[in-house]
Amino acid sequence: MNSLLNAALVLVLALNLFALGTSRILTVIRTVTFQGILLGILPLLVHGHPSLPAVYASAAAILLKGFAIPFMLTRAMRDVHIKREVEPLIGFLPSMILGAVATGFALIFAGELPLADEHMTPLLVPAALSTMFIGFILLTTRAKAILQAMGYLVLENGIFIFGMMLVEAMPLIVELGILLDLFVGIFVICIIVNHVNQAFSSLDTRHLAALKE
């Protein structure tokens, strides 16, 4: 079971780097969608015999991250007629290198942590840390509001992987609450995207720094 879990986590890490390196907004959205669906399957892999809460969490996560959120984001993309390029603040190669360094750092750091024995072998902790780091990198180095939303999503995916370790201990309600927050967050961001676009006819959030009375 652990090996399948590791394979899925390695794919998640690969998707992280791909999201950092690609130049099309739609591709980033699709990558993060695929990552969300993959993470939705994780609760079933973590424990060999899936329990009812695990199935619920998994179904909710797949529905939300695999269908609802990408649908809203692609519609927002279509409505605001923005350019399809990512236009990062730092280049693609530097951001990919940053991501790779973050992944390596997460691997080393997770090796140092005093973890419970059952959490040592799978890559859960390093994958969660590195996904969160990469979410931060996406958030801080991309100027467009939609890509910052993708950064939030990747960040949440990292937290979701952490949650995997507690899937039986943590009440289902907490998991659902997080997902609901995420949904509302993305919903609000889509509305903001529309307004930013109407006000500045661009999605660059740097314009917001120049707001005046």
Binding site: S3, N6, A7, L9, V10, L11, A14
Partner: peptide
């Protein structure tokens, strides 16, 4: 099954 994670990386 046993060594899936490295094999996935190598496959990509």
């Amino acid at each position: 099954e046993a060594e899936a994670a490295p094999l996935v990386l190598v496959a990509v």
